[in-house]
Design a protein around this nucleic acid. Structure first.
Lengths: 198, 198
DNA sequence: GCGAGACGGAACGGATCCGTCTCGGCAATG
DNA sequence: CATTGCCGAGACGGATCCGTTCCGTCTCGC
């Protein structure tokens, strides 16, 4: 063994440079193209115009690479601005979320990752703890503000409310894959507000 | 070529027998275990205690096998009974649907197939035309009955209503993977009725 | 200008998969 | 009893993948 191994905290990438960026981009593009189940590091390296060794120099395994990159991306979740009313907040959140879900990479990767949870405990944990919790926290702010304003009762069930903030939009956009025009979002927001107040 | 090929309508299975049943069961169990992307016909044959030839005697390819078996299963969708009120219909539908979604095989296979649509046009077509359309038809009956009863206005948007019948329950059960007790379903039904009436 | 180390590229062994093909076994038929 | 045809088992060629290892090159800091 003549090669010296760089000492690094196990499981994380060391280098922040062009090659790492290319690998990250290639990883997500490949993930969007074939899905996690069929993701091959050979293809990622090929797409990044890189040798496989460059990958294994950064991450110890395919799963570690996935989890690390997922966490990096998860911090992107945006805030939900206070528009002054529950309906305004919901509509703003719908508009922004729908836009995010329509992103070509997101729309292919997200359902795949949600499905991959069933087969890969690591992905389930990362998605639940990092991304899910953060989302829950940020979107929950909409409901808490509405309670403070007096638009919703004090004993509002936050979890149940979040199901209505997420469910219909996710179903329409991702499952049913319907073309959602702005008018639809407005009418959906009206109905969600009615549901929350019920 | 000494083997005689049985004349059959291209693409469909011929034999309805023990072997076919074993293959179908093994296919879905394997699908639930590894996902469509990594589904291997070798593993299906192994699990069914069968030779691979038995598969290729029935279906010309992995995709054909999948689509054929999916269509066979899709006819299982149950009817939605008339309970006399919109709220009763919704709650009955919720209860039955939640039960179906909790089925160990369904809960693993369904998200995977929804994700697989992005990579396999054939699956997207089959899911959309066969299963999606049928579901839309049956669940839509709930809304049409409510319109006839006068519980909903005549100009009710069926598609938007369906998003509320499906979205929150799907999100809570499949995405959030929350433990849904009967009480939660009842409160969710209340809110859905309020949303539909808005 | 020199050494350390990352680079792209390529090959490796071992594994898995697809789809085809060939066996011998077995049951039903005639 | 001989024929027929599906059966399970599994070998096969060709392909892909993982994770490791090596080569020769390039770019740094010193």
């Amino acid at each position: 063994m003549s090669r010296s191994v760089p000492a690094r905290p196990q499981g994380g990438p060391v280098l922040q440079d062009t090659v790492t960026d290319a690998l990250r981009a290639a990883f997500f593009e490949e993930l969007a193209e074939v899905g996690y189940g069929k993701l091959s590091l050979e293809a990622v390296a090929r797409r990044a115009s890189t040798g496989k060794a460059a990958i294994y120099r950064r991450w110890p395994s395919k799963e570690a690479m996935t989890l690390d990159l997922l966490v990096q991306v998860s911090v992107t979740a945006a805030d939900t601005p206070d528009t002054g009313s529950l309906r305004g907040d919901v509509l703003a959140y719908f508009t922004k979320t729908e836009q995010a879900l329509r992103h070509p990479l997101v729309s292919r990767i997200l359902p795949d990752l949600l499905a991959a949870r069933a087969y890969h405990p690591g992905i389930a944990a990362t998605l639940g703890e990092r991304i899910g919790e953060e989302r829950r926290e940020k979107v929950g702010t909409i409901l808490r503000r509405a309670v403070e304003r007096g638009e919703l009762p004090d004993d509002t069930d936050l979890d149940l409310g979040l199901d209505f903030l997420a469910g219909p939009l996710y179903w329409a956009t991702m499952v049913r894959q319907a073309p959602t025009d702005p008018d639809l979002l407005a009418r959906m927001a009206d109905k969600v507000v009615a549901a929350l107040a019920a």
